[in-house]
Design a protein around this nucleic acid. Structure first.
Length: 652
RNA sequence: GCCCCCUUAGCUCAGUCGGCAGAGCACAGCCAUGGUAAGGCUGGUGUCGUCGGUUCGAUUCCGACAGGGGGCUCCA
């Protein structure tokens, strides 16, 4: 046994420590500030905890609390403390799993007698957690055999299930179970939890946390298993970081499209219609019309043809398409009339296939690109509805492209470029894609799957779009690409989707006549770029916090005469702007100027013009831009009209 | 569908330890002609989400239901 060990630091230097030294000792030897900030260590790149002895000759790095790994450790440790507090306050409570997540952590519990937490309980739990933290209890790692683990957690059936799961099959590293061993962490007052670690050396390192909410969650995420009580919390390395996070949440709340939708008079969900069904008001309708007009013009340029199809169809259609077999629970219930059974359509594809099949098709017509703003109805479960982001009736900017197998790859590449062009026009810049591949349960020929998946991959690479492969996440009938965007405050939203489908062409027995005069089966691509117009609308509102770019704003310029006698000039200014294509309102001088400025600003109108004596005399306007604190006085009218016209045209 | 929370004027919310309910904004009328985020005065406004229970009496306490929010599951 050597008395000294040597550890290497990532910067290439080495350090001698007494044998048995831990990550915490290393941190202390490097410096006091670091010792305070340290929450864990890595040995040869693998996480360990600060309390385990370090091996001789390893490269050791100390993990600080403000790093991603460090925050992970903090949050995980805070989750343990929460479980400890809950078992103190509810003796006999069972604890299941409590991992760190983005911005925080959660822990799932089952309370004695099936009791539920209420929001008031969060305060009590937090108080108890603060006591535990103040007591500075060390986290001590222990290793046990599986048998000892089962003994230790005899009265914790969820922990037993985790340990037993290991015996049966794979190890569950995150839970500290694997290779025939079980690791745990114990606090001084006896609370012990199954865990791989690492943890902070003691509870005193924690403290900048807040319990956020109570929720229910199914054990193992399976709705047939017991429902547990989940508490979510957030935890950070400093008070400043915690406050910043809470501030971000407030900002996100201010951007909530439902709140802004009401404030800006854009849309609402009348209870008389039922959940998930929206009505657009004139201003929201105008924004939507601009979106649709732009989309139509771009589709026209890209070689799409426009079709229109009904909202209802007989069951026959959805029997052929397979929707009744595969998707019945997502469809609105049937209506019977005159002996027929009708369903509201959950998708547009079967309708577009009927357009294709209306006559014999030649390879010379392909690719045939059929486009429609198709409104569909899906019976989403009540708990999943979420404003415009998840509705029961919505409109897809839907297209189905029918092509020959040879055309598939180039068509996909063009399509992806088209997707990005359209999204960029709406001011979205930050994209990521997900390539979803063949699931376990699939239909069709694996060779065809490979062809399609490969075509999708090549399209992604051609577009230089960063992507991740979601293995087995494809639809049962086809692989797909989902395009995600990041908004102004970094949230990720799924928008566009591109799917290759060989299944429906077969079900509908689609054909085209090739150059060889033989009949062939076309490939089909499903694609929606906005995804759903309603959803995309909601995302834009949140992205821009309601302050839409000029070209999308329902009112682009408000003209405010200082006094009533400036009204004629204000009308003239408005007329010139309208002639240049702008949407203009004049707020007459029956209210104080300041109040009218405020009203226009609250409506997030991009330009508020004030015209008074000087302006009438010099044919100028006072320009108050949304992005500027102070107004510009005396701007020549002609200059301003030109500027707005350019902005509208260039989507600035 | 399941768990937690919420529901009082058009909106945001206060309130009644059980005794016929309030503020600000908005709205209406009048006055004020005002150069950049709320001018002044006056006024009307409610089945206190719905139904049932307890009570002399329920907006308040209890229960059910509906609608909304946050999660879970789901998202072909």
């Amino acid at each position: 046994m050597p008395e000294q060990i040597t550890v290497h630091l990532p910067d290439g230097s080495a350090r001698e420590l007494p044998a048995g030294s831990t990550g915490a000792d290393l941190a202390a030897s490097i410096g006091r500030g670091l010792a305070r900030a340290a929450v864990a260590a890595t040995v040869d790149g693998r996480e360990t905890d600060l309390t385990s002895p370090l091996p001789d000759g390893a490269t050791v790095a100390v993990v600080t609390a403000d790093s991603t790994a460090g925050r992970h450790v903090l949050r995980h440790s805070t989750a343990h403390v929460m479980a400890q507090a809950v078992t103190d306050l509810w003796p006999g409570a069972r604890y299941a799993i409590g991992p760190p997540i983005e911005n925080g952590f959660y822990y799932d519990f089952e309370l004695p007698g099936g009791a539920h937490f209420s929001d008031d309980d969060l305060g009590r739990i937090e108080s108890r957690m603060r006591q535990i933290i103040a007591e500075d209890q060390p986290f001590v790692r222990e290793e046990h055999s599986v048998a000892e683990g089962l003994e230790l957690f005899a009265d914790q059936p969820y922990k037993v299930e985790i340990i037993e799961g290991v015996d049966a099959a794979e190890s569950d590293e995150a839970e500290g179970v694997g290779g025939g061993a079980v690791s745990t962490y114990r606090n001084t007052d006896g609370f012990v939890d199954l865990c791989r670690g690492p943890h902070v050396p003691s509870t005193a390192r924690l403290g900048h946390f807040k319990l956020m909410k109570v929720a229910a969650a199914y054990w193992r995420g399976d709705e047939r298993r017991p429902q547990l009580q989940r508490i979510y919390g957030t935890a950070w390395e400093s008070k400043a970081a915690l406050d910043e996070h809470l501030h971000r949440l407030e900002e996100a709340e201010k951007r909530d499209h439902r709140k802004l939708g009401a404030e800006l008079d854009l849309f609402h969900f009348p209870p008389e219609l039922g959940g998930g069904l929206v009505v657009f008001h004139p201003r929201g309708g105008l924004i939507r019309k601009v979106m649709e007009d732009y989309s139509r013009a771009e589709h026209e340029r890209a070689g799409y043809e426009f079709v229109f199809t009904p909202h209802l169809a007989k069951s026959t259609l959805f029997e052929i398409s397979g929707h009744l077999e595969w998707y019945a629970e997502g469809m609105y219930p049937p209506m019977e009339l005159e002996g027929g059974v009708y369903y509201p359509k959950p998708m547009n594809c079967p309708m577009h296939i009927l357009v294709y099949k209306s006559r014999q098709r030649s390879y010379r017509e392909l690719p045939l690109r059929l486009f429609e703003f198709g409104t569909v109805y899906r019976f989403e479960r009540s708990g999943v509805l979420n404003g415009l982001l998840r509705a029961r009736g919505f409109t897809q900017d839907d297209s189905h492209i029918f092509c020959t197998p040879e055309q598939l790859a180039p068509e996909l590449a063009d399509l992806l470029a088209f997707v990005l062009r359209l999204l960029r026009a709406f001011g979205l810049e930050d994209f990521e894609a997900e390539l979803a591949t063949r699931p376990d349960k699939f239909v069709g020929d694996p060779a065809e799957w490979d062809v399609a998946t490969d075509a999708l991959r090549r399209a992604l690479e051609a577009a230089e779009l960063p992507y991740v492969v979601a293995d087995g996440e494809g639809a049962f009938y086809a692989p797909k690409i989902d395009v995600h965007v990041r908004d102004a405050i970094g949230r990720r939203w799924q928008v566009s989707t591109l799917q290759v489908d060989f299944q429906e062409p077969q079900r509908f027995d689609m054909e085209f006549v090739g150059s060889d005069n033989a009949r062939h089966r076309p490939y089909m691509i499903h694609r929606a770029l906005f995804g759903s117009i309603e959803r995309f609308f909601g995302i834009l509102i949140e992205h821009y916090a309601g302050a839409l770019p000029t070209w999308l704003s329902p009112v682009q310029v408000s003209v405010l005469p200082v006094r009533s006698d400036h009204q004629p000039y204000a009308e003239e200014v408005a007329a010139q702007l309208r002639a240049a294509g702008a949407r203009v309102e004049v707020l007459a001088a029956d209210e104080q100027l300041g109040a009218r400025v405020r009203r226009a600003k609250m409506d997030k109108v991009p330009y508020v013009l004030v015209v008074g004596d000087d302006d009438v005399a010099a044919r100028t306007v006072g320009v108050n831009s949304r992005d500027k604190e102070r107004p510009d006085r005396g701007v020549p009218l002609g200059d301003f009209v030109g500027r707005v016209a350019t902005e509208i045209e260039t989507h600035a």
